[in-house]
């Protein structure tokens, strides 16, 4: 039997009932996560990358949301059918999450000490003094100087980068198995972003935490991730280890995404390649491949049938009928 993965998600589907019809935010997503690895989930707004993770933690408001199928096994236990009490034991203790905007994720009325000690007293049964000592230790670990004083400050007394460090300290204070980071560095300046990514890598080395890194920034993926899922229209369109994904993208969307990012080491004589068109309307997904209307490599069959997952030679898979290496894009066909 295959070794049990830390997290195994199978055929997850999430939909939202709206005035414009049923919005299919996640459409049959399956992936797994091994202990100690960093899995990147890349996609644009509306690709379903955040909803996938919120659904696993029971954070989708139902209604209007609905998890219509799937399992999400954490150490063999299905998170999607776990009751609220069990979920709140897991959240924060075994699976923790950090968000894009640390100011809205921290409670502005409570000091950092109150927020950090609440978690450890609840989950680890720390006494008051133990909890405070632990909170100070965590702040020191994430590089906050003068932690024994700063721990009594309120969130607004910290800068953006420091607040994100507090969030990370909060998320890691029970030494979870999995850290879900939803765009953790997007709101930060580049020099601060570099500090936060380095900090996450260091903490992963020290604690062996598995990280799910949700981001739209391919630079962040290249910096921190081991494996990558590319999502489009609520589906995984390509999965591979980070090196082969960047070196040898197989799905036209991955290819388009990689080519359309301005790089500061790129050849400037060429114009930026674009992915034409607009992201899909999740309330009215096309019958076939959801990338079909924007795809440069499309064929007739792509409009009618949904492409299954094909294996990549170096591991991983991609959901596309076309071999992008042997077919010319539409613009170059004569």
């Amino acid at each position: 039997m295959e070794e049990q993965k830390l997290l195994q998600v199978d055929d997850l589907r999430v939909e939202f009932r709206t005035d414009e019809g049923i919005v299919r935010a996640v459409n049959g997503v399956s992936f797994d996560l091994a202990a100690g690895e960093t899995l990147g989930i890349v996609g644009e707004s509306g690709s379903g990358k955040s909803v996938t993770n919120l659904a696993m933690l029971g954070l989708i408001p139902q209604p209007p949301g609905r998890i219509s199928s799937g399992t999400a096994l954490y150490r063999g236990e299905d998170l999607l059918t776990a009751n609220a009490k069990r979920l709140s034991q897991i959240r924060g203790r075994h699976i923790a999450m950090i968000f894009q905007d640390p100011m809205t994720a921290l409670n502005p009325f409570l000091t950092v000490e109150e927020q950090l000690t609440e978690v450890t007293r609840l989950h680890l049964g720390h006494s008051h003094d133990e909890a405070i000592a632990h909170a100070i230790k965590m702040l020191e670990q994430v590089g906050i100087t003068g932690a024994e004083k700063r721990v009594f400050d309120y969130p607004h007394q910290f800068s953006g980068g420091m607040r994100q460090r507090v969030m990370i300290a909060l998320a890691l204070s029970c030494n979870p198995d999995i850290l879900i980071a939803d765009e953790p560095s997007t709101a930060l300046d580049v020099t601060i972003q570099a500090q936060i990514l380095d900090l996450m890598k260091q903490l992963q080395k020290d604690h062996g935490t598995a990280i799910i890194m949700i981001t739209h920034d391919l630079g962040v993926v290249a910096n921190i991730c081991h494996r990558v899922l590319v999502m489009y229209g609520g589906k995984i369109v390509e999965r591979a280890d980070v090196d082969s994904l960047f070196a040898n993208p197989r799905h036209p969307y991955t290819l388009g995404l990689l080519e359309s990012v301005p790089r500061w080491d790129a050849d400037l004589s060429k114009k930026l390649k674009v992915v034409p068109g607009q992201p899909p309307d999740l309330a009215h997904l096309p019958a076939g491949c959801s990338f079909y209307p924007r795809c440069s490599y499309r064929e007739v069959r792509c409009e009618q049938s949904v492409p299954p997952a094909f294996e990549r030679p170096e591991g991983g898979d991609f959901a596309c009928f076309i071999d992008v290496d042997s077919v010319k894009p539409v613009e170059e066909r004569t």
Binding site: D217, V221, A222, N223, A247
Partner: peptide
């Protein structure tokens, strides 16, 4: 310039 991430894992 050195802090801006490059979308290329080898270069990174």
């Amino acid at each position: 310039l050195s802090a801006a991430p490059i979308p290329d894992p080898v270069a990174e």
